[in-house]
Design a binder for these strands. Structure first.
Ligand SMILES: [Mn+2]
Ligand SMILES: [Mn+2]
Ligand SMILES: [Mn+2]
Ligand SMILES: [Mn+2]
Lengths: 228, 228
DNA sequence: TTTTAAATTTAGACAAATCTAAAAATAGTT
DNA sequence: AACTATTTTTAGATTTGTCTAAATTTAAAA
């Protein structure tokens, strides 16, 4: 018995899946209905295109929509979106763990792999990877029911001097930031201790491994830790 | 340095790739130019659609085309088609070797995976699978230059009594035939000896493993062996 | 409250890939 | 060679996802 077979039967187009996923991510961030403009920005299209697609998704009962009021996911829409995110993140784990990809190289390929439709494929891949719970960027992998068990991660910038955190994820996943972290040898699973916070620019001095370094407020805000 | 980067830049559509692959398979079979009707049949579309696509591929210099004369691949078209077949067959190996798929389950998923565009992905996959030369059905995997080193396989039906063959592939790849082979415990790599050929219906009695069985002329014609 | 600005939707157009129906070319047959 | 049947191409229509430009609605400001 594999993941949401009853839903996959709806046989969505590539575009429908990508819009649904964008709505999923945007509404997770804001908590409220996703606006047409935000959706268009996220999808790199125009507002009129977003409106068209929202209507189509509403027709299929994947989103709730009232004119001028933005869109929210229905239970079914959320499940489909979560399954796409699940696939995306499992493939990212595969690429890093098995195929020697670096964590800054996986996203683009995963954008395509996430649309492959096969329940057996994704369940076998999950097993093959030994049921990972987070992807290479520390983002949680929804289970086959679309649920994520969130370890409550906080930005490093929220910690105070002498507090310790386990590095569990990144907010910004740009190549530039990931490569910066590589350069200063910060990776997921590393323990960080806050030494000092500079008042005037928010930069943070942290100790980890054998290092003690100062990172900018921007960097600290984009690195997630779990307090320990 | 990965496979035909200069070609992938052409950024083909899904449909273009599938037509090109169909022309590749059809022309390999017949040796001559692929007709519009044959192509339409293979693609499960109408002749008019095949004509349209042939024209588009000819515009892009992937096929040679003169009205009413059918289509042949250009060097560039053949390279792209071979790269898609290469990806298809490597993914089939992956699914069987790593994800516990049976050989009758892989084709449909591979039809989708073959369109994922990433040179690094496919080269790393190739290495991860230890550079296989044939897929789970015994079909050869083109190398990164589109070349296949064909082990000259012949249908089992062409062997005479007392001749031996190593089972290396199947012609018919339908679920039904593959499951039939599973049932009678014939798999790739098995040694077969012809005991007797029935004149009136062409059926063949073969010995393999601990068995001696009679298979139909149709089955024998669809099982490839390499004489030993 | 009126006016202005911003966000959203509608209307109409376009490219890609397909179809049906009709025309044109080729191949086969008398 | 002339006729017929088959194959192939063209013409015109349709669906999907996109766009621009214009109209409408909502939000903000005066
Ligand atoms: Mn990603
Ligand atoms: Mn990720
Ligand atoms: Mn196959
Ligand atoms: Mn195969």
């Amino acid at each position: 018995m594999y993941f949401c077979t009853h839903v996959i039967l709806y046989c969505m187009t590539l575009s429908e899946e990508n819009y649904l996923k964008a709505i999923y991510h945007l509404s997770a961030k804001s908590g409220i209905a996703v606006t047409t403009n935000d959706l268009a920005d996220a999808m790199d299209t125009k507002a009129s295109s977003a409106t068209d697609m929202i209507k189509k998704l509403a027709d299929k009962d994947f989103v709730n929509y009232k004119k001028y009021q933005g869109a929210t996911l229905t239970k079914e829409g959320r499940l489909i979106a979560a399954s796409i995110v699940r696939k995306h993140r499992l493939w990212e784990v595969f690429l890093v763990e098995k195929l020697n990809f670096n964590w800054d190289e996986v996203h683009e390929v995963a954008e395509h792999l996430e649309h492959i439709k096969s329940d057996k494929l994704i369940e076998e891949l999950d097993a093959y990877l030994d049921y990972p719970t987070v992807d290479p960027h520390g983002d949680p992998i929804p289970d086959k029911y679309g649920e994520i068990q969130a370890g409550k991660k906080v930005p490093l910038s929220s910690l105070k001097p002498s507090e310790k955190g386990l590095c569990v994820g990144v907010k910004n996943t740009s190549k530039e930031f990931l490569q910066y972290l590589d350069k200063i040898e910060i990776a997921l699973g590393i323990e960080l201790t806050i030494i000092e916070k500079e008042v005037f620019d928010g930069s943070v001095t942290i100790a980890y491994k054998e290092f003690q370094k100062n990172i900018s407020a921007v960097a600290a805000a984009n690195l997630y830790v779990r307090k320990i």
